[in-house]
Design a protein around this nucleic acid. Structure first.
Lengths: 327, 327
DNA sequence: CCCACACCTGGGAGCGCTCTCAGGACAACC
DNA sequence: GGTTGTCCTGAGAGCGCTCCCAGGTGTGGG
């Protein structure tokens, strides 16, 4: 078995007895080609095991090699978040049939120049923004129009895909209220993240409508911060009877700390999470939480951006309350 | 602000008053170039915001657009595994400075033709195999020599990177023995995965050396299987006093089921995991487990494959016992 | 009979880059 | 003076593909 040079379009054309142009038209299924030519080219391509050279195609087309997942944030924790990996994984799955690669890119907050530079790279086929802000969105160059989507906040030009944090949080808080909780605190996500803001907004609304006190403690989705936040809640408002976590990890941190302080969950204080990660059902007490279909969201966003429609609609994926034991 | 055409090497060369070739040499830092030329080219590139066109480079070099992470397996659970996402994420981080993208590819077990086809795609710059078998490894085409690495099993041509499952499992089982456990069962990983086989091997060895009974139940890393396996262990060997899980998820499943049956953990039965996921410290009881530095392993593998050394050494990353409460 | 039109084809340019190669300049040695 | 070098440079040839365009063939209508 010799080390064969991969066969090129030229080889296929020669084998089929047509010109490169005709072979290209057949393979790309564009323009005219006689049925006979079609058959011969297809057969030749099959027999030679022809695989198009993506680099050449991208070069001449001027676009199309990578879908870049760009994450904004100043904080290393955001970049180390397994959430980002899940988005990248989902994007990679979507890209596979297109023969596209996925690249991960960090966008320092407050330096939108990075985006422009990214856009000027011809290798960039599509852009998927995550954890981003309005400011970054406004900096998206026109050249990328139709090839960008955002997970999180959107704009007139950039379609957004995200979970309905507001709805999920509302369901969670209402559930707490329905089960008799009246002094409900919340551990928030990072302030600059719109999804976190939506959760806070929903919490405020429900709590205000029910004439309950507002008790907010800053968090960052991590379990570590959850621990700290639980302690803070206990100190500032000792009579708190429920804590809403902005993520399941936060909720686990909260629960762990509460237990360390001798507080019963859910007996003394109910705790809820957000995300419904697989382990939420496994812990004791099993976590009451709201679903967050990350894979579906990322898949939808990647699909939309690859389809390249002019202005696809923004989509909010519903978040469902999952009642378990912790609340 | 007009929509500028991205500047090309030609533009840089013209601005610097040199030829394309010289500019290329300076920018690639290869071959001769006078200091004066170097300065002028660098300045011009800076000023024009020159970004090389990866497609063109890959085209002429004949390699280099994507690092493909290929996962073998017949089972959808393997592909849906967040583990794969973590590998892809780590690879994407490593690739970023190289301007490379990462693609995810599924390699059906028993159909190594997929690998050849993949290799013939010129867009393929490097290949990272995960969850793979010796058979797949043997099918790696010579054309990819030096551009492949494997997470898991290796071969003479393909360097392997993996966690030292054997060492980790040994530490876990010894710990169980040291704390008085004498009837230790194990929930294994998928049979065809060499890392799972190493764990089983280590378990067998330690247990045999101590003249303890061998109690193996098949698993697949999932919490769901852990539940089923726990029940099976209880039925077949009711006097079991420790269960070694092949993953933290499995261990959580086991614990959940045991508790459902009224069995105390670790009072009646000690349970251990493997991976030391962040949540292992958060649950009650906190999970005794062995570390599995997935990100470090994947990073090392991706780095090695991008460096493209002829025959990098295979590496096993140590797994450390983490003593918590469950065992 | 000629023209319009649809259908089909191949020549050829060119995407932006890398790399080989021939050759110039200059120093150091015989 | 030649003869080696070493250092530096630019012309030019492609990499494999897509797409424009000129040109061919047939068919039907004026």
């Amino acid at each position: 078995m010799t080390t064969r040079r991969p066969s090129t379009l030229q080889d296929v054309a020669r084998a089929a007895g047509v010109s490169r142009a005709t072979a290209s038209r057949v393979l790309a299924n564009t323009g005219y080609a006689s049925p006979a030519a079609r058959d011969r080219v297809s057969a030749a391509a099959d027999q030679l095991g022809y695989v198009p050279n993506l680099a050449a195609r991208a070069l001449v087309r001027g676009t199309g090699l990578r879908l870049v997942v760009a994450v904004s944030g100043t904080d290393a924790t955001v970049l180390d978040d397994p959430y980002v990996d899940r988005v990248v994984g989902a994007a990679a799955r979507v890209c596979a049939p297109y023969g596209l690669g996925v690249a991960l890119h960090w966008l320092p907050t407050g330096a939108p120049g990075g985006l422009r530079r990214l856009a000027e790279e011809r290798g960039l086929g599509a852009l998927l923004l995550t954890n981003t802000t309005e400011a970054v969105l406004d900096a998206v160059p026109v050249g990328l129009r139709g090839r960008v989507a955002s997970i999180g906040v959107g704009s007139a030009l950039v379609p957004a895909f995200d979970v309905d944090n507001g709805g999920g949080t509302e369901a969670v808080v209402r559930h707490l209220y329905a089960t008799g909780r009246r002094r409900i605190a919340m551990v928030t996500g990072p302030r600059w993240l719109s999804c976190a803001a939506r959760s806070v907004h929903a919490y405020r609304r429900v709590v205000r409508d029910a004439a309950l006190p507002v008790r907010l403690v800053p968090g960052d989705f991590s379990a570590r911060r959850g621990r700290v936040a639980a302690r803070e809640v206990l100190e500032r408002w000792p009579d708190t009877d429920a804590i809403v976590g902005c993520s399941d990890a936060t909720a686990f941190g909260v629960i762990d700390r509460l237990r360390g302080e001798g507080v019963q969950v859910p007996g003394d204080v109910a705790v809820t999470g957000f995300d419904d990660i697989p382990l939420a059902a496994m812990t004791t007490p099993a976590l009451t939480t709201a679903t967050h279909p990350v894979a579906r969201i990322a898949t939808a966003a990647a699909t939309a951006v690859l389809a390249g429609r002019p202005v696809p609609p923004s989509t909010l994926f519903p978040s469902r309350l999952v009642r378990r034991v912790s609340a």
